[in-house]
Structure formats: structure tokens, C-alpha cells
């Protein structure tokens, strides 16, 4: 129970940080997506079932708190949580490369899913501009933070709350 509450707290803190404190380091109003990184690391360490659930919850939190279309982030994070959750048992979570590579793949996947959704919703977008603003910049931010987020996830996963 304590562990579950800790995970909720971590996701909430991550969201609060990425929407307030980390705005200090934003570039062109683009910032790191800590919820995405948490979802990826959580899925990689807990499997597809919990990964999908974490993606669903994290995405829903973003959707509700940011006021965007309901399901916009929920969908993408859920798919990503599911996809990365399938990798459990095939990757070694202690490898330094794992969070770095997975953050790049997850950011690209998140971008593709969101672009498809936006196009399906009937919006027109400038693909070149969006590649720069919505893929390249987040990619760099996520790459920088991925290792630390993964470390936090691994630490919390292995932490025992038994008194």
C-alpha cells in the first residue's frame, strides 16, 4: 500500500515539477516530459500490465490537469507503457544505455502517436516545424533526464517499505 502511494506521489511530483519548476529550463515553451519517462521506466521494470496502467494514469493526469482533449495523452502513454512493458525480461534494467535509448524511442513513438491523433482530429500541422519543436527539442530534454528518472524508478522499485 505504502509503495503504491509512493508511486502516486512520484507521478504527481513529476507532473508538478515539469509544469512549474522545470519551466525554468524550457526552450521555446518545450520542456521535459517526466510522465513519459516515468511511464517508460516503470513499464520496463514492472511489465506490460502495470506499465499500461501507469501510462493510463499518468496520461490521464496530464489530460485532466492540463485541460487538453481528454484521452490525448492517456492514449499515447498507455500504448507506450504497454509497448515498453513487453520488453521486460529482454533488457537489463541496470544498463546505463537502457534509459537513454528507451527515452529516444519513447519520445519518437509519443510524437508519432500524437501526430496521428492530431491529423485524425482534422488539424493541419507543419511537419518540419513540428519535427523540430515537438520531436527534436523534447528528445534532447528527455535524453538528459532519462537516466535520473530511471534511477529513481529502480530505487523505488527495490525499496522495501516493510517496517
Amino acid at each position: 500500500m505504502k509503495k503504491n502511494l509512493s508511486w502516486i506521489a512520484v507521478f504527481l511530483i513529476a507532473y508538478v515539477l515539469q509544469t512549474s519548476f522545470l519551466n525554468l529550463f524550457s526552450f521555446k515553451n518545450v520542456n521535459v516530459d517526466l510522465i513519459l519517462l516515468l511511464t517508460v521506466s516503470y513499464a520496463l521494470t514492472h511489465g506490460y500490465r502495470l506499465g499500461t496502467f501507469a501510462g493510463f494514469c499518468g496520461g490521464l493526469l496530464q489530460d485532466i490537469a492540463s485541460g487538453t482533449f481528454l484521452g490525448f495523452n492517456t492514449l499515447s502513454k498507455m500504448i507506450i507503457g504497454f509497448g515498453f512493458g513487453l520488453m521486460i525480461g529482454r533488457v537489463y534494467e541496470g544498463k546505463i544505455l537502457l534509459p537513454l535509448v528507451s527515452s529516444v524511442v519513447a519520445t519518437a513513438a509519443n510524437y508519432v502517436i500524437l501526430i496521428i491523433v492530431v491529423l485524425l482530429l482534422g488539424y493541419r500541422i507543419n511537419l518540419i516545424q513540428s519535427l523540430y519543436n515537438l520531436l527534436l527539442i523534447p528528445l534532447i530534454y528527455n535524453l538528459v533526464f532519462s537516466y535520473f528518472v530511471h534511477k529513481v524508478v529502480c530505487w523505488l522499485k527495490n525499496k522495501s517499505f516493510d517496517s
Binding site: L12, V16, S20, A65
Partner: peptide
């Protein structure tokens, strides 16, 4: 979330 965001923002602004 707002109070936490407000606190975090203030911290960010201070920093």
C-alpha cells in the same frame, strides 16, 4: 495540484 505547482514555480522563479 495548484498549491504545489505554485510553490514549485516560486522555487523555480527564485532559482
Amino acid at each position: 495540484l495548484a498549491p504545489f505547482q505554485s510553490f514549485s514555480s516560486a522555487l523555480g522563479n527564485k532559482s
